[in-house]
Design a protein around this nucleic acid. Structure first.
Lengths: 87, 87
DNA sequence: ATGCATTTGTCCGTATGTATG
DNA sequence: TCATACATACGGACAAATGCA
């Protein structure tokens, strides 16, 4: 179980955009509370390994999540789940 | 007032490089005469605290100012505003 | 001469930002 | 989209140089 926690199978040749699959998967974790506000996400390199995609694809997904206001990236430190207060 | 003396707000997400913002800010102080030739600057650790950045970022800014010929660093002593004579 | 604090110099590891092919 | 490389930035640790007690 805890299927929601597993990493989705990603078919690079599939119709859905890879970065969007990753973004939606992480977004679901955040909205489910699996990732809590202020918590740090794994590094882009780690996520790339976990999802089996390139780092640039993870970054594209991070940009998507940033645009949705779900996360916040800090140069040299990491990426964090956005805290409602700190818009 | 004395707005010129205050430390600039640094937006890590901004397009400008952090070390360049710091370098330009200190350069302005020197060129304005706020920091006089021969005068010692605060230590890198102090500057890091004042600007709210890492020491390595301050060092990167110092390197920029050294390259511009505005300052001179002495191991174990400190960093000084360059005196025109001592090129 | 000895130790101590301060300051710059150097290095390491990790993480994000940017650019190219 | 992937793969690679480099720049920027953070944080910590230690070395080297200076000056002082």
């Amino acid at each position: 179980m805890a299927k929601e926690n597993d990493f989705p199978e990603i078919d690079p040749d599939g119709p859905e955009l890879v970065y969007m699959v990753v973004a939606d998967h992480i977004a679901a974790k955040i909205e489910r509370g699996d990732l809590k506000p202020g918590q740090r996400l794994p590094s882009e390199l780690d996520l790339a390994g976990q999802y089996g995609v390139a780092r640039m694809t993870i970054r594209r997904a991070m940009k998507e999540l940033r645009d949705r206001g779900l996360i916040r990236s800090v140069h040299g430190k990491g990426t964090y789940v956005q805290v409602p207060e700190s818009s």
